[in-house]
Design a protein around this nucleic acid. Structure first.
Lengths: 184, 184
DNA sequence: AACCTCATGTAGCGATTGCTACATATTTAG
DNA sequence: CTAAATATGTAGCAATCGCTACATGAGGTT
């Protein structure tokens, strides 16, 4: 295989990890290059743009996230809105998922600012989340699956925001309240 | 009064409007100065820092937002969780509030990145929101007011995220679903 | 008139940004 | 073996960033 293509794979994998660990604030070309163990010059040899680098790294992360979500909550089990909300909330505040959720917030904020490539990326990942949620709602129990899915996604994303502006204890209290509501 | 203090007030008011209109992406010192109709040199004469400028402008916005929220949904009326959720959601997606919610997202993302002054600002405004919500929950109907308030805040913030990554129609569908649930 | 504080403009510094021009090394092909 | 293609390093450009040094004007005090 081309050296170039090998490097592209390697670099994107490294950058996905780096973004997860440090967020979008440490994402200048030089910082990304250092994190990937290459020179900034070579980063722009492997990829056309900084936006291509970020787009590929984010897509890689989204793919990994989606795979882990599929495993964590298989689609063969259809739930009520309250039950799925509680299950998914517990999942999303798990330490294994939190770095992604934090990055996810930053990506949406960048999208709100219309920074390429985040406008496209955010829409794309958002669609994926919505599909994941809707595929786990029991149509017999949920009168309006698209509306319910949108509500659930808003709540899950909101939990990530809440962690930043309210602290972890508030998030855990919210999740506990959701679980209590889903039992009652 | 001091010319300086007059200018401080005037400039902060202008910058609050500017931030609402353009978000944090157009918030370099020179851009802020231009929006306020002063030179960047004078901006740093009136205020010590860029962070002070942003902190004051954000606090001004938060104050205005709080006042409008107080009027829009008076605290003398205590509601169930579902009812308050639906009412507040309808409020928050109103065009009059949306610019603030969008800016609010950017502020939280900046806080996640630990950019001063947003770490403090976001916590402070978040506390205000939580207090506003809890003051409108009927303790007789809500078993766990702090948990419920945290849940509601997460959902409201999440609606703003959803608008960015899923479009306005999804947000409206979510709000409609919340209203339907609050009636049923 | 002399002075002194407040207010404002001009100019620029050092750092960082994304990106590129140019030269050189290394590999591959004819 | 030579020549072309691929790969990599060095250096730097133009723009923007937050911020500051310096000079100058304006207005009040003594």
């Amino acid at each position: 295989m081309n050296v170039r293509d090998e490097q592209r794979q390697r670099v994107i994998a490294a950058l996905a990890e780096h973004l997860l660990a440090t967020g979008l604030s440490q994402a200048s070309l030089r910082q990304l290059a250092a994190a990937a163990g290459v020179s900034d010059r070579m980063l722009l040899y492997y990829f056309v743009d900084k936006t291509e680098v970020l787009a590929l790294a984010m897509q890689s992360l989204a793919g990994g996230m989606a795979a882990r979500l599929e495993i964590a909550l298989p689609a063969d089990q259809r739930l009520s809105q309250a039950a799925l909300t509680a299950r998914a909330a517990r999942l999303v505040v798990d330490p294994a998922f939190r770095p992604f959720m934090r990055l996810w917030i930053e990506a949406i904020a960048a999208a709100a600012r219309e920074e390429p490539p985040f406008a496209d990326i955010a829409r794309q990942i958002g669609e994926g989340f919505l599909a994941w949620i809707e595929a786990r709602l029991d149509p017999a129990l949920v009168p309006d699956p698209p509306g319910a899915a949108a509500t659930i996604l808003a709540l899950l994303d909101g939990l990530a925001l809440l962690e930043v502006c309210g602290g972890e204890d508030r998030v855990l209290r919210a999740v506990a309240a959701l679980e209590a509501a889903s039992l009652g």
